Simulated assay, not measured.
Amino acid sequence: MAVGKMKKYREMLRNPVLRPHLPETHWMTDARALGMLKTYSSIFIKPNQGSGGSGIIRVKRLKSGYEVRCGPSMKLAGASSVLKAIHSYRKSNDRYLVQRDLRLAKYHGVIFDIRVYLQKPKHKWMISGMTARVAAPHKFVTNVHKGGHAAPLREVLLSIFHNNSAKVDNCYRKIEQLSIVIAKTINKWHPIHELGVDLAIDGTGRIWIIEANSRPGHMLFTQLPDRTMIRTILANKRSLGRTTS
């Protein structure tokens, strides 16, 4: 079974380099969800073993009540019925975690995050691919299965940093450094040779760790006009004996 989100979150939380980049996350309980909604204007409730953006619930505080969304479905709820709305979207057999929402920077008016594809074909972690993952209009997740698409990362960073090349280069370096630290940290606990790291940038330019996926898919990189990254990923997969993903 794949390693759950909470286990990897706690492993990363032990690393002082990664800790400032991790959004507040807890096991989901009714009391925890209500408490976090008092602190944050929006929260995510995610299945611990979920992938592809499936089953993610967003609860957003409104002037009067709450908006609870899961996929294309949306419910409006008052303070007394918000938990009922949340539970209506949950699968009873799954464990969930609750995480603060982030005010993400936007690219052409929609949110995006960053997928970093790391591999260890020999004895050293390397970054085989980095791309922005842009959400479909009006979506709150960026996954390809939910309509998201790849865009060249430097192009997206130049847009959000208003063509300031120095800021883009600095952000790029930080993303690379952070991703390698994440891979080494997760690898301490699990015998992995590939890792998909999802990072986000908020409106102030701060980098956040969304999650680390020990079974990353590579199809996102086939959408990029430059084929260099997908060729590198596939070449390393052949070296690792893993040609499917």
Score class of each variant (00 low, 15 high):
Ile192Gln: 12
Gly148Ser: 04
Val156Lys: 00
Asn187His: 09
His145Gln: 13
Ser179Ala: 10
Trp189Lys: 14
Lys188His: 13
Ile180Cys: 00
Ala212Asp: 00
Arg227Pro: 07
Arg227Asn: 08
Thr228Glu: 15
Ala235Gln: 10
Pro225Tyr: 14
Ala151His: 09
Asn213Glu: 03
Cys171Arg: 02
Leu195Lys: 04
Ile207Gly: 00
Asp198His: 03
Ala212Ser: 07
Ile160Leu: 08
Leu224Asn: 04
Glu176Arg: 14
Lys146Ser: 12
Thr232Asn: 14
Glu155Thr: 12
Pro225Ser: 14
His218Val: 13
Lys188Leu: 10
Ile210Pro: 00
His145Ala: 15
Leu157Ile: 03
Phe221Ser: 01
Ala150Asn: 05
Arg215Asp: 08
Thr232Tyr: 06
Leu178Met: 15
Glu176Gln: 11
Cys171Gly: 04
Leu178Ser: 12
Arg215Met: 13
Gly148Arg: 05
Ile160Gly: 01
Lys237Glu: 14
Ile210Phe: 09
Ser179Glu: 12
Trp189Arg: 15
Lys184Val: 04
Asn170Ala: 15
Ile210Gln: 03
Gly147Trp: 03
Arg206Asp: 03
Asn163Asp: 12
Ile230Phe: 11
Ser159Asp: 12
Ile209Gly: 02
Asn236Ala: 08
Ala183Phe: 00
Asn163Pro: 13
Ile175Thr: 01
Glu176Asn: 11
Val197Met: 06
Pro191Tyr: 05
Gln177Thr: 13
Asn170His: 13
Asp198Thr: 06
Ile180Asp: 04
Asn170Glu: 10
Val168Leu: 01
Lys167Gln: 10
Gly203Leu: 12
Ile182Val: 13
Ile182Asp: 08
Gln177Arg: 11
Ser165Ile: 08
His145Trp: 14
Lys188Phe: 12
Ile175Tyr: 02
Asn143Val: 14
His149Ser: 08
Arg231Leu: 13
Gly203Tyr: 02
Asn213Pro: 00
Glu194Val: 14
Arg154Pro: 03
Leu224Glu: 02
Arg154Glu: 02
Ala183Gln: 07
Ala200Lys: 11
Asp198Leu: 09
Gln177Leu: 12
Arg154Thr: 03
Leu158Trp: 09
Ser214Asp: 13
Thr204Val: 06
His193Gln: 02
Asn164His: 09
Pro152Thr: 07
Met229His: 10
His145Pro: 12
Val156Pro: 06
Trp208Ser: 03
Leu199Trp: 01
Thr185Tyr: 05
Thr204Ile: 07
Asp226Gln: 07
Phe161Thr: 08
Ile210Glu: 06
Ile182Arg: 01
Val181Asp: 02
Gly148Cys: 05
His193Trp: 05
Ala235Lys: 06
Ser214Trp: 14
Leu224His: 03
Lys237Pro: 12
Ala183Asn: 02
Phe161Leu: 01
Tyr172His: 08
Glu176Tyr: 15
Thr222Gln: 09
Gly196Gln: 00
Glu155Phe: 09
Lys167Ser: 02
Asn170Ser: 05
Glu176Val: 06
Leu224Arg: 02
Asn163Lys: 07
Phe161Ser: 00
Lys188Glu: 12
Pro225Lys: 10
Ile201Met: 04
Met219Pro: 07
Lys167His: 13
Asp202Lys: 03
Asp169Ile: 07
Glu211Met: 07
Gly205Leu: 08
Gly147Cys: 04
His218Tyr: 11
Ala183Pro: 08
Leu220Asp: 06
